[in-house]
Design a protein around this nucleic acid. Structure first.
Length: 417
RNA sequence: GAGGGCGUAGCUCAGUUGGCAGAGCACAGGGUUGUGGCCCCUGUGGCCGCGGGUUCGAGUCCCGCCGCUCUCCCCA
């Protein structure tokens, strides 16, 4: 047996209704917020991600599926959606046609990490971006949209955690300040944090090791390093979120994994999934578009992990259940021709109709009808055939009666309402 | 990358001091010549993850490998 790739997963017929519901609801919600769908390839030139995400990030350094194709091009499976979307926006000059662009995409991303609960090597993300507007209203709108998706899908126990990581200038200042504070404690930090000290000291604030937390508790907070503009921006975002009644909590220590974030950063935390597992996250990026060859415009985006979202949902929603309008039970060879014509005609009229061809007993066919959750069963045997009738059974009530073949559609359509 | 746990029927899992491979669910047939769900009976289905070792004898004990899973790291 050939098994599927580690960290990848199949979504089987029993689960696809739930997925369909999530994806449909997310799309509908985003359309309501003025986003339009964009679909970009799952593969891009490696260089795009190196420039977009940042060469020193974990994602690019060790998590990408990267290879050379037969002509020697360096290609990678996308580890996130933003870079590809921005590439398409720049390549097709979409921002020249409309100065503010709102797009979303839903599809698989790939990261070669060690799989664990809620983490896969192929995973689906709902991804939305607003480009060309750096107003704090837009930050709040993006956060509100992310929250709306979650609530429309029926997730509970949600919290939006927000922070401002400042603009380029603020971050440089803060980094220096943080290093100065941490220097005397360097040998008390965990090995990872010692490494982070040089590469990305901001991450130390986010460490889960007890001792590091203790030290970080008294560390300077980025909000004190924000310049007037960034401070005002962040303040405004909070004000608008309160106005819109989106529940949020300021997390001064939150730092996100992708390097390109500036100013607003946020995460969607689902309490039941455990504190270190965000269902989604996002933030503003002031320079990314320009770095990818686009205009000097700011953008903000977020991603929601579909697998994690599905984990946090209530189970057994009856609206996912399989439904069939009618099962046609064919009794005997002679009735087969009439049976398949009826099935076909019902389907043409937009009803879901199912049957079995292999001459099963009525009892067996009733079991099939039950399994596909048919609302009605139509029975056709020799007797019905002779009179050009069918026997209709309402599977809910068990009521049963004969109608003429000509009246089938009429009866079932009326029944469907 | 580091560390735990687990691999027995399609699924969930029992399996005693080493002694004939089990249950529930699912599936198929029957109890009803043409009537589902509930109930009863019967049946199909196993390289006991793979390879080696110990033993008269291994699902069980030992070693190696593979796979899955969880925690840490990081992230969606």
């Amino acid at each position: 047996m050939i098994r599927l790739i580690k960290g990848f997963h199949d979504i089987l017929p029993d689960e696809t209704p739930k997925w369909g519901f999530i994806i449909r609801t997310a799309g509908e919600t985003l359309e309501r917020f003025g986003f339009r769908e964009i679909i970009t390839p799952v593969m891009e030139r490696t260089e795009l991600f190196e420039r977009g995400i940042g060469q020193v990030t974990d994602i690019v350094e060790k998590e990408m599926y990267t290879f050379e194709d037969r002509s020697g091009d360096h290609l990678s499976l996308r580890p996130e959606a933003t870079a590809g979307i921005l590439r398409a926006v720049v390549e097709h000059s979409l921002l020249r046609r409309e100065p503010i662009l709102k797009v979303y995409t839903i599809g698989p991303m790939f990261r070669r990490e060690r799989p664990s609960k809620g983490r896969f090597r192929q995973f689906f993300q709902i991804n939305a971006e607003v480009l060309g507007d750096d107003s704090p209203f837009t930050d709040a709108e993006a956060i509100t949209a992310a929250h709306a998706i979650m609530t429309n899908i029926g997730a509970s126990g949600l919290m939006m955690e927000i922070n401002s990581v400042g603009c380029q200038q603020c971050r440089d200042d803060f980094r220096a300040k943080l290093r100065r504070f941490l220097e005397p404690h360097l040998d008390e930090l965990c090995p990872d944090c010692r490494r982070r000290y040089d590469l990305n000291p901001l991450r130390i604030l986010d460490c889960k090791v007890d001792r590091c937390r203790e030290i970080a508790k008294d560390a300077p907070v980025i909000s004190d390093s924000l310049d007037a503009g960034c401070k005002e921006h962040f303040h405004k975002v909070q004000e608008i979120l309160s106005l819109l009644e989106v529940p949020f909590r300021v997390e001064p220590r939150m730092v996100r994994g992708l390097d390109y974030y500036t100013r607003t950063a946020f995460e969607i935390i689902h309490e039941e999934l455990g504190r270190s597992k965000a269902v989604g996250g996002g933030g503003r990026y002031d320079t990314l578009l320009k770095e990818l060859g686009g205009p000097d415009a700011s953008g903000i985006g977020f991603a929601i992990g579909v697998e994690r979202l599905a984990m946090g949902m209530r189970e057994e929603d009856p609206s996912y259940a399989r439904r069939t309008d009618v099962y046609v039970a064919i009794l005997g060879e002679k009735a087969r021709e009439a049976g398949i014509r009826i099935v076909n005609s019902l389907r043409r009229q937009g009803l879901s109709a199912e049957t079995r061809y292999s001459g099963m007993s009525l009892k067996a066919q009733m079991k099939v009808a039950d399994k596909v959750r048919a609302k009605n069963v139509l029975m056709i045997g020799d007797d019905e055939l002779a009179r050009q009738e069918v026997t209709v059974r309402d599977m809910q009530t068990g009521d049963q009666f004969r109608i003429s073949m000509d009246g089938i559609a009429c009866y079932l359509q009326g029944d469907k309402r």
